[in-house]
Design a protein around this nucleic acid. Structure first.
Lengths: 238, 238
DNA sequence: GCAAGTGTATTGCGCTGCGATACACTTGCA
DNA sequence: TGCAAGTGTATCGCAGCGCAATACACTTGC
């Protein structure tokens, strides 16, 4: 697992030495591990030139993870229904401590780059989904997450000050949903709604993301919030 | 890895005993393995009731697999461009011996069920993508794949006879693309185009899938084939 | 022509994964 | 009510396997 995790830091094929360093072990040990992972299909050679890449065998486990996840199962039909009424990008992201991890994504026509990919994540502290989730946690839990986060800004407007973030969380508490503008991507507005488990803990969030070029914030809220809220309630078990 | 692979046969949370059996080992050994996989985040307990599920940590590796894959990198922008001109569902599936494994999927408004999921696969022998790939292989290789396949039909129209399949492959050889109707899903028509690596081996296929309720086969071919072919050529390296 | 990279193969020690065993708890049938 | 058959958990000791060491073939570039 350490060897496979070494790819997290990569931005292209990895050599044995790099994998060894990333996995915290000897080059020869890494080679042996790569060897067996390769026979199992979890790693493959880069076709052109040097280095190794993760193998498609991993996608089998991806499918298991998604199709067996009770939340994803429940959410998918609801999200598709939601998308029919709202013609914007719709995501389901799972709460994973400091990050929100995209599990389901339904695109629109004009989508940015390779945002198609499952497994992408955004920080909890500066995303609409994160704020929605945080709004259902206690002040101590919120502080814990905010303090432990690496609060590097994505855009000039990304909120990094702990007080500002807590204000957004408080607003989300009052409203029951969160609105984020220009946080991850400039020009983007996102509304997010918390999803709760049977105990009332937040476990995920639904996002509806649109463009500030097409909407004013008020219009967007009016249009999108009622539908999103209904969908989130349908998925929640609380 | 055996423990994680045990989930492939599951259709819900798995108990320790089931995992042990699936992984081919003792129940206590499985327990110990589950224990460490759980601390690593690769397995989690099912929230309600008994059993275990794959953990979202796996999705980190999914992201690596997709974002580092040279083919996916090259293909994504091309596919998105393609989708702007063709308003049907577009997929990129990777050739993996007996199956074609979906890596990228761009939906339309009205999509069926939970076809959203990455990692889904369809048999090579009866899918348009499979035929497209087979059309670039030798007769022996085609026979090998067809013979080794479990040729269970999906619809009443699924081709299962080896001769019929080879005829489709031959047609794809002549045309440069493959058309499949009612093979995986009744009412579906799909056009597929082979993607080649530098050596000329087929490694993937682009699909464009539409509904027979909206198109005749001839109309569909006229509309879709030129665009799909151009996209496949743009991605291929041969 | 040497140095610093690749990836590969083989050998052997010692850590770690597996099996055995025991226990607490729930469920359902006798 | 009590037993049987399931759950999941914890601990311990041996043996098999993962890791380090070593050697080698090949490419790249100074």
């Amino acid at each position: 697992m350490n060897v496979l995790s070494a790819f997290h830091l990569a931005d292209g094929p990895m050599t044995l030495s790099q994998l060894a360093k990333g996995a915290g072990m000897d080059r020869s040990a890494a080679q042996r591990m790569v060897h067996t992972l390769r026979t199992l299909g979890y790693i493959r050679r880069d076709e052109s030139g040097n280095g190794f890449l993760p193998g498609i065998r991993i996608l089998d486990h991806t499918l298991d993870t998604l199709r067996l996840d009770p939340l994803v199962r429940r959410a998918t039909p609801v999200l598709q229904e939601l998308r029919k009424s709202v013609r914007e990008r719709i995501d389901l992201s799972l709460f994973d401590d400091l990050r929100m991890l995209y599990a389901v994504r339904l695109q629109t026509k004009r989508q940015k780059f390779y945002t198609t990919l499952v497994g992408h994540s955004v920080p909890t502290f500066c995303s609409s989904g994160g704020w929605a989730v945080l709004s259902k946690l206690s002040d101590e839990q919120v502080s814990g997450i905010v303090n432990r986060s690496d609060r590097r800004p994505f855009t000039p407007d990304t909120l990094t000050d702990a007080q500002d973030i807590k204000a957004q969380v408080q607003k989300a508490r009052d409203d029951g949903y969160a609105i984020a503008t220009n946080q991850i991507l400039s020009g983007e507005i996102a509304a997010a709604f918390p999803v709760l488990n049977t105990k009332g803990d937040p476990i995920a969030a639904i996002h509806i993301a649109g463009s500030l070029a097409e909407w004013t914030q008020d219009e967007y809220i009016q249009r999108v919030v009622p539908l999103g809220q209904e969908a989130a309630r349908a998925i929640s078990q609380y």
